[in-house]
């Protein structure tokens, strides 16, 4: 197996990411995102599994009304497909592809899996309240100097730092 290549310099990565975000805002008038694509997928799923529920429950109904061409025809869905391809290409050229599970030295794989599921659930839930996640609300919000975006960012990192001590066994 070929050697795994080192990660990019973080400041260079940040600079390039900033340019991509700037290009996104300049071209499309909106920022980057991630959780919004999951929302599209969830609405699409509910629409296909339980159409009557999707037609009555406001969360799905409102979304479908805004997306007349179909729940999946959303800017972020296309963007996230791009993210998947881009990350895959990056993993491929840096020899980082492969099914792996990372966890802290004082925890087990089972705990890591359970916590990853729980963490994802909370992130998915929180991103709805926050109208975006770290990408869509915090990063993109910061770029356009949105008060709400920056508040969301401070709340994410503030709350994470506040509870980090109690969950230190997961990571260190």
């Amino acid at each position: 197996m070929e050697e795994v290549k080192p990660y990019m310099n973080p400041y260079l990565a940040g600079f390039l990411l900033g340019l991509i975000l700037l290009a996104t805002i300049f071209i499309t008038g909106r920022g980057l995102g991630a959780s919004g694509a999951v929302k599209s997928a969830v609405v699409w799923g509910v629409e296909n599994v339980a159409p009557s529920h999707a037609a009555t429950a406001p969360f799905y109904k409102d979304y479908l009304q805004e997306h007349q061409d179909g729940a999946l025809k959303n800017w972020l869905v296309f963007e996230v497909i791009g993210v998947i391809i881009g990350a895959f290409i990056s993993g491929l050229i840096s020899n980082r592809l492969g099914f792996k599970l990372e966890h802290g030295p004082s925890t087990t794989s089972k705990v890591r899996i359970a916590m990853a599921l729980m963490g994802g659930l909370l992130f998915g839930l929180g991103a709805q309240f926050g109208r975006g996640c770290t990408s869509g609300a915090a990063l993109s919000g910061m770029a356009v100097l949105s008060f709400g975006g920056i508040i969301t960012m401070m709340a994410i990192f503030g709350s994470a730092y506040m509870i980090a001590f109690f969950f230190r066994k997961l990571w260190i």
């Binding site: 729980m118 963490g119 659930l121 839930l125 929180g126 996640c133 609300a137 709340a155 509870i163 969950f167």
Partner: peptide, 12 residues
């Protein structure tokens, strides 16, 4: 939302 996401970040 941010506070919930923060917990999600630590756990996940």
């Amino acid at each position: 939302g941010g506070a919930i996401m923060g917990v999600g970040f630590i756990l996940g």
